[in-house]
């Protein structure tokens, strides 16, 4: 049986709980909770993407666009129309679901990696729209003044409060996804990955499942976008470009594609690398990502999530 152990999830949740409290006391990492908010936002995207890529075997190079749609819908509806941020979040997710179904359906009905090409084109189109529809999006300069979040009078106005909000949602999404993986639905997804024709012959509606998972991953990306917009209070198109989509793939590849934990580990690492540890490299950080991708593909095809298995293998010998 594919079982994902509960203990590591509990340990991880505990770590998330105490991290800000610890970081506050160590000057060198005082600002880490802020980076962790971004890591959490990106984790929301990669959890869904990991289900799509690692379990259902489909590649998307357009998730930056879904991330952007969520962010811009939240941004535009709250600043221009004064709507409730939570309602905007839900609207963003609903719109993204429809858009993802429209983009995904034609390509997911085919066998092979057509989704990668369709999402690549889609991502570029959406990026152009963010840049050109100046009256709505503010164009390349972006839009500012997006309000923060509050719930029943409780303002998520500090880094720590937002941290707990985002990571609470991440852990909920993580557990939901883990449950899906361990269920008959997850089994059907892995079956599709192994053999589409056999899965079909066993009654699995292959196209419907691929679309469903694609839509689910897009909706999570949209939710992440809304959180991003309300945290930074400012968005501009550069955040949602093609390179960000690729960065998401690097996160998953580094963490390990066939393991849902890989999404968390890879995203955490890459976020800290790009927001903190690679600051000295400036534009050259791209080279580091290239090196990471190369290293992982050649040396660690299972990603970092595969390392415990390798270490266990050494001890068994």
């Amino acid at each position: 049986m594919l079982r994902i152990a509960k203990l590591p999830i509990a340990v991880f949740a505990l770590f998330i709980l105490v991290f800000p409290w610890t970081a506050r006391r160590i000057p060198a990492i005082e600002h880490y909770p802020d980076i962790m908010v971004f890591a959490g936002i990106y984790c929301l995207i990669t959890i869904g993407l990991s289900l799509l890529m690692g379990y259902a075997g489909q590649i998307s190079i357009g998730h930056a666009a879904f991330f952007g749609i969520g962010a811009y819908i939240s941004g535009i509806l709250t600043t221009n129309y004064g709507m409730n941020p939570w309602a905007c979040m839900l609207i963003g997710m609903a719109v993204t679901a429809v858009v993802a179904a429209l983009v995904g359906t034609p390509s997911l009905k085919l066998k092979g990696h057509y989704l990668a090409m369709a999402t690549l084109a889609f991502g570029i189109i959406i990026f152009i729209i963010f840049n050109e529809e100046t009256q709505w999006t503010g164009g390349p300069d972006g839009m500012s003044g997006i309000p923060g979040l509050s719930l029943f009078g409780f303002e998520f106005d500090s880094v720590e409060r937002y941290y707990y909000l985002v990571w609470g949602v991440v852990i909920a999404a993580f557990i939901f996804t883990v449950n899906v993986i361990q269920s008959g639905t997850g089994r059907a997804l892995r079956a599709i990955h192994a053999s589409e024709s056999a899965a079909g012959a066993m009654g699995v509606d292959v196209a419907r499942f691929k679309i469903l998972v694609f839509v689910y991953s897009a909706v999570l990306a949209s939710l992440a976008g809304s959180f991003y917009a309300h945290y930074l209070n400012f968005i501009n198109p550069a955040t949602f470009d093609l390179f960000f989509s690729i960065k998401l793939l690097i996160m998953i590849a580094l963490g390990g594609m066939h393991n849902i934990w890989g999404a968390i580990v890879g995203t955490g690492l890459i976020t800290f690398l790009s927001n903190e540890w690679l600051q000295y490299f400036e534009e050259f950080e791209v080279i580091v990502y290239g090196a990471i991708l190369l290293f992982v593909t050649v040396i660690l095809p299972e990603g970092l999530a595969g390392v415990p298995g390798i270490v266990k293998g050494w001890f068994r010998r």
Binding site: M1, G184, A199
Partner: peptide
């Protein structure tokens, strides 16, 4: 055309 990455039991469960 088995699901090679799944166990014997999981194949039948599917």
């Amino acid at each position: 055309e088995l699901f090679g990455n799944m166990t014997v039991l999981e194949n039948v469960m599917l």
